[in-house]
């Protein structure tokens, strides 16, 4: 799906802070973030641990309040979660007492989307096929491998047919081989559905392979350091030319240089 010129998410001077009760202080996680994300775009956020990437995604989803500025989705201020935004979690966040199918149906039970029972069934079936899990409807999450669990998480996020897919380090807990396969899957799904995707990762390779733009965020307070455009044609995942190209190496080096100092800082705990 080609990217349109219409902005779907607009963050305007967005600031997010947390109360540190014990010290009676406020910790500013994100400061003055200005970011416009276009419909159909795949934006990847990269930055050191604790720089506020998750806070950004949580603010877009409506899970946490903002302390300054604004986030608008399709021109409307975000105040609460909504069916147009779905989220994929790092630790999958599947309800362990529900089967795969029942987990994917969860969004239908929690909100009235005005769709018929027939269509719900059809959509669950489509979602399961899209993530290659047909035949596992009656399995419980604890019976699945990590990669399969996350595919259930993705299927659940796709169930409401959201415009925006928010992914918070979805493949962080998955082994390296499965991870590559999952990245290909993610690219294919987002291409097929034409969704806008905001994706957090710590892997620079993942960022370059998946993102149309890579937003590098600095550490304490989180600010946008640079936005890097990635111009490789899609699909990139099964295209071996991408990874061995000179541009790829240059981009990788460039982004590493941007985050290097920050990453070193976090290890020293400054």
């Amino acid at each position: 799906m080609p990217i349109s010129n219409e902005n779907i998410i607009v963050a305007d001077n967005l600031t997010i802070s947390y109360d540190l009760h014990r010290e009676r202080k406020k910790l500013i996680a994100l400061q003055d973030i200005n970011l416009e994300i276009k419909k159909g775009e795949f934006v990847v956020l990269v930055g050191p641990s604790g720089c506020g990437k998750t806070s950004f995604i949580n603010a877009v989803s409506g899970l946490i309040p903002k302390s300054g500025g604004s986030v608008k989705v399709r021109g409307e201020e975000v105040t609460a979660p909504g069916p147009d935004r779905a989220m994929v979690f790092q630790d999958y966040a599947l309800l362990p007492w529900r089967t795969v199918e029942s987990n994917i149906r969860l969004p239908y039970e929690l909100q009235n989307l005005g769709i018929s029972e027939e269509e719900k069934k059809q959509r669950v079936k489509n979602c399961l096929e899209l993530v290659d899990l047909a035949g596992f409807e009656k399995s419980f999450p604890y019976e699945l491998s990590g990669g399969m669990k996350q595919r259930v998480g993705i299927a659940r996020a796709l169930a409401t047919n959201p415009d925006i897919l928010l992914a918070d380090e979805p493949f962080a807990a998955i082994d390296a081989m499965t991870r590559e396969a999952m990245q290909a899957e993610m690219e294919r799904i987002v291409m097929e559905t034409g969704q806008t995707c905001v994706f957090i990762t710590h892997s620079i390779d993942e960022a370059i392979l998946l993102g149309d733009r890579v937003v590098v965020i600095s550490y304490r307070p989180g600010k946008i350091k640079e936005i890097v455009n990635i111009d490789f044609p899609r699909p990139r995942m099964n295209n071996s030319e991408v990874k061995i190209s000179k541009t790829y190496a240059e981009l990788r080096d460039h982004i590493w240089n941007l985050v290097k100092d920050e990453a070193m800082q976090t290890t020293r705990g400054e």
Binding site: P2, M191, P233, R234
Partner: peptide, 22 residues
């Protein structure tokens, strides 16, 4: 280059083909 031009329809179709192949 405009974002919309970067990710053209041809790319999209090629992507679907490849996804089906995998």
């Amino acid at each position: 280059m405009e974002l919309s031009q970067r990710r053209s329809n041809a790319d999209y179709e090629r992507g679907i083909e490849m996804a089906k192949a995998t």
